[in-house]
Design a protein around this nucleic acid. Structure first.
Lengths: 348, 348
DNA sequence: CTGTTAGCGCATTCAC
DNA sequence: GTGAATGCGCTAACAG
């Protein structure tokens, strides 16, 4: 229980070990060019004193801080926390620390976070832009002297690299999947249409139904259980009730599911359901819900790798070059076939 | 798009503004004792250059880093990510940055994380000890010159403050609740029994059944769906089948739930179910699952507040003193009555 | 192999 | 009100 007010410094170690500061510095940096004897002695002293190098001083010397920042809407959101976990693994592998902050999807908080991280001299930044179009963010980012990678949503009109799911293709093939099942009146439900991801998904849905000559029916009013109930109930009571629901985000999928349960609508016999984005619930619920799964961990991993590529001076020219050439890295989604679309029997 | 290789420094700002470094320093620290004119000019230059103070240099001056560390088993675990979110809010309120790292419940990784954070000179540390008994951790922590607060699990035999749920009382009253419902053959299921939290819950369960003169029946074999199926199936086929299941952790609750579904056992008519720890699924599933809810955000919040209390020199002597006196801060759990225990009708 | 020294960017005396 | 000088802990020349 030797609490000191101030941690031991390198020169204290040097003094205690009877050597110069350089020697100690060498020891803590791998012990090159130091005699075995000295090395051992210094190491012992370091241990006794509980010495830990002061990163701040290193940073000041102009070195990298070996920290990278990640700004996401919420730490508690499973999608982003999985990204974070994957990114952290990559950061560790690159001997760096990942600092995660939450923007709560608020552009102002986001800018603030960028500034905080920059003043902590992170070597690079990964972020899920609260507002893809925001020009304040774009300007700030373009001024930054560190590399930036966007995830989930690209920063429009900017050169910053981005790693996103292929929302368009994922939605299109999901819709096509419903069509292949024989459904003909497929309505697309969401509660949000400004987000880049959602827009892409809408495009995908549209492409599929139009290609098949089926009606395009989009409803963006699903904000909560109530609105979902109202929307779905009126549709089912309407002239041309849907035989399939394609929901574009988790909350919408859940609301739709609960409403169908409440209304005792048989899923998928009467109405089938397919959601974009996977979630724990989807597989556990009865009937289990088919979904388009995003490569969550991969997004975090690839984004971090891309960042370190840039930091290291583009060791993988292929990937970095690709990004510069063709915009966002687009990662494939994966259709998870469960019961709600009719792929597997509803009874467990 | 003015990318510089190296960010502007305070002295550059000073030169550009035609003032001394001291003046700039004053400006960025609130602008006391600077003439309005100079202030405005310096501010403008700062803006033009996109200057951001280098935290590293400040830190080196001996100030606090205004960062605190949080080490949790996994960022992607909803329980801990909610804690993290709450702790981050408190950190922000104290003008500090929260750095979250994942230990994956591995004592070695945990020690490593402590060291990394310490070398980054965090002002304080919050952690969920991978192993409450681990003496390596205890020793390291006791040597640290920064305050530490443990969450979820205390560090045994150590003086570090801790914030935990009242696992014992929560489990006891949950069990009592089942007893009050009239269930008599209550079995307690878990897949883990070394964790502090689980042990406490077991104690709680035991206290309740013993007080009621009911049989004590603990099964710690539930590691996955398979083992749950085996265990539950044989119990139900056995001589004295349980009429209630008390599961001690989320995964166990889910496995048990799925097995009961698969076996088409009526819940709660045939067997009721009550789980420790709430999760999204629990309320969405049919029948909805009754649970003991932990004050997740509160744990994160209180832990962070406790930490800042210590950093600020104990502004709330009441709380800090309390902690020193009586060990862990114990936060009340809350019983969420849903369908699976029989509290509300199973049909939605 | 090892020690001496000069800054890194900033806050802080202490003069002016 | 303002500025010049000093040192925080460390690394990277540059001697020895």
């Amino acid at each position: 229980m030797k609490k000191r007010t101030t941690p031991p410094t390198l020169s204290e170690v040097a003094r205690a070990a009877g050597v110069g500061t350089t020697t100690v510095s060498r020891v803590i940096n791998g012990g090159e060019r130091v005699s075995a004897k000295t090395l051992a002695r210094v190491r012992r002293v370091i241990d006794e004193l509980g010495y830990m190098p002061n990163q701040a001083a290193r940073v000041l010397k102009g070195d990298r801080t070996r920290t990278i920042g990640l700004i996401i809407p919420s730490i508690a959101d499973p999608f982003f926390s999985s990204c974070a976990e994957a990114a952290q693994a990559v950061a560790r592998a690159n001997d760096s620390l990942l600092i995660v902050t939450a923007s709560h999807n608020d552009p102002h908080t986001e800018l603030e976070n960028v500034n905080i991280l920059i003043s902590h001299r992170v070597d690079g930044l990964i972020l899920a832009p609260a507002n893809s179009q925001g020009q304040a963010l774009r300007e700030l980012l373009d001024r930054l002297s560190v590399p930036v990678v966007a995830i989930d949503r690209p920063v429009t009109k900017s050169k910053v690299a981005a790693v996103v799911s292929d929302n368009f293709k994922g939605a299109r093939s999901a819709t096509q999947h419903l069509i292949d099942h024989g459904y003909r009146r497929i309505v697309c439900l969401t509660g949000e249409s400004t987000l880049f991801t959602i827009q892409e998904r809408i495009r995908g849905y549209r492409a599929a139904v139009e290609a098949a000559g089926l009606p395009y029916n989009l409803n963006t009013s699903i904000k909560d259980y109530k609105s979902a109930e109202y929307a779905i109930e009126s549709m089912l009571a309407g002239a041309d009730p849907p035989d399939a629901l394609f929901t574009l985000k988790n909350s919408t999928t859940m609301f739709a599911f609960e409403v169908l349960q409440k209304l005792k609508v048989q899923v998928p016999q009467k109405v089938s359901l397919l959601g974009f984005d996977d979630f724990e619930l989807a597989s556990a619920v009865r009937p289990s819900i088919s979904v388009v799964q995003q490569p969550v961990e991969e997004i975090g991993r690839v984004a971090a790798e891309l960042l370190f590529d840039q930091l290291m001076g583009r060791k993988h020219p292929s990937l970095s070059a690709h990004v510069r050439r063709s915009g966002p890295v687009t990662l494939e989604t994966h259709l998870i076939r469960r019961a709600s679309c009719g792929c597997i029997p509803a009874a467990v």
